[in-house]
């Protein structure tokens, strides 16, 4: 594996082997000394051209638990604000000795460009509304830990799917692993053309309360009213995971959210804090999954630029 850019072209075998590897790192993180020397001497650069706290911290924790050194970059304090191009920034960081780049960027495909320019292994930490592949892996791991498998599970993804890179990565990952995915959103928040997507579509969250997993996406408040739905209360009435709806879920069903949550909008506070909401497990698994991906990319594979 040279890069980790998207989940679209990953097979079930690829995904399962990454999840198995991730489980080994769950064990490592559970040790008294949760750190191994595997990537000693390697340097992982974090290039987050979009504000992010949780994903950047998670990648940093993962790199450090593998004994890699990290370099961090944030756009507000960087030469980008002085007009430096993305390409020059990437090449500069390569020249400083980075062995791999973890990149988040608002523009779709920026990571593919950076991979071309630098020849370094690139991990996609989110590009535009396109892909967020480590999020999909940590989500799959969290589901697998609860149910043992994704095969045959029914998973509903609820919310702003059109603008969600999490949804795009999750959909291909969940369905490759054998789950049946239903998208739940107003049509203004669904992708324009779903031809070829392995999904069903439902128009209200009430239609999918019998699923095994409810996956809630963050609703950006600024979308309300402006252009894609009339108001937040109207959204909550059709798509919010309220306490009442939570009570109608199956006994073993779980609720997930990629964070950060809007309590009271897509998820009621009581639901967010319920043991069957796996939101903090998702966060913990994120570190293990990112260790697995970093180890796959840097753990001794010979890279020819």
């Amino acid at each position: 594996m040279k890069h980790f850019l998207n989940t679209d072209d990953m097979t079930r075998e690829d995904l399962e082997s990454l999840l198995d590897l991730s489980e080994e790192f769950v064990e490592v993180l559970d040790r008294t000394i949760p750190k191994v020397p595997a990537l000693r001497g390697k340097t992982v650069a974090m290039l987050f051209f979009e504000p992010s706290t949780r994903t950047r911290l998670s990648f940093e924790r993962a790199a450090k638990a593998l004994s890699a050194d990290t370099m961090s970059f944030s756009p507000s304090t960087s030469s980008l604000s002085k007009g430096e191009s993305l390409k020059d920034t990437a090449l500069t960081i390569k020249a400083m000795g980075a062995d791999a780049l973890v990149v988040r960027h608002k523009s779709t495909g920026a990571q593919w460009r950076i991979a071309d320019w630098t020849g370094l292994p690139v991990l996609n930490a989110g590009d535009g509304a396109h892909q967020h592949p480590t999020q999909a892996l940590l989500d799959a791991l969290t589901i697998r830990q609860h149910f043992g498998t994704l095969d045959g599970l029914r998973i509903a993804i609820v919310g702003d799917i059109r603008h969600s890179r999490v949804a795009r990565s999750d959909i291909s990952t969940f369905s490759a692993l054998g789950a049946e995915v239903t998208l739940v959103a107003p049509s203004t928040l669904l992708p324009v053309d779903l031809e070829g997507w392995p999904v069903k579509v439902a128009g209200s969250i009430d239609d999918v309360l019998d699923v095994d997993v409810i996956y809630l996406l963050r609703i950006q408040a600024e979308r309300g009213g402006a252009s894609v739905f009339p108001s937040l209360p109207e959204y909550v009435s059709r798509f919010g995971m309220t306490r009442e709806r939570f009570g109608r879920l199956q006994e073993n069903a779980i609720v997930m959210h990629p964070g950060p949550m809007n309590r009271g909008v897509e998820i009621a506070p009581e639901v967010a804090d319920h043991p069957r909401a796996r939101i903090l497990e998702q966060v913990s698994n994120g570190v293990a999954v990112r260790m697995a991906v970093l180890f796959r990319l840097l753990g001794g594979e010979v890279h020819d630029d």
Partner: peptide, 16 residues
């Protein structure tokens, strides 16, 4: 011992 080897650069161990 995959995570502790001193020859990762020469022998890929990406399975554990």
């Amino acid at each position: 011992i995959g995570l502790y080897r001193d020859d990762l650069d020469r022998r890929p161990t990406t399975e554990l």
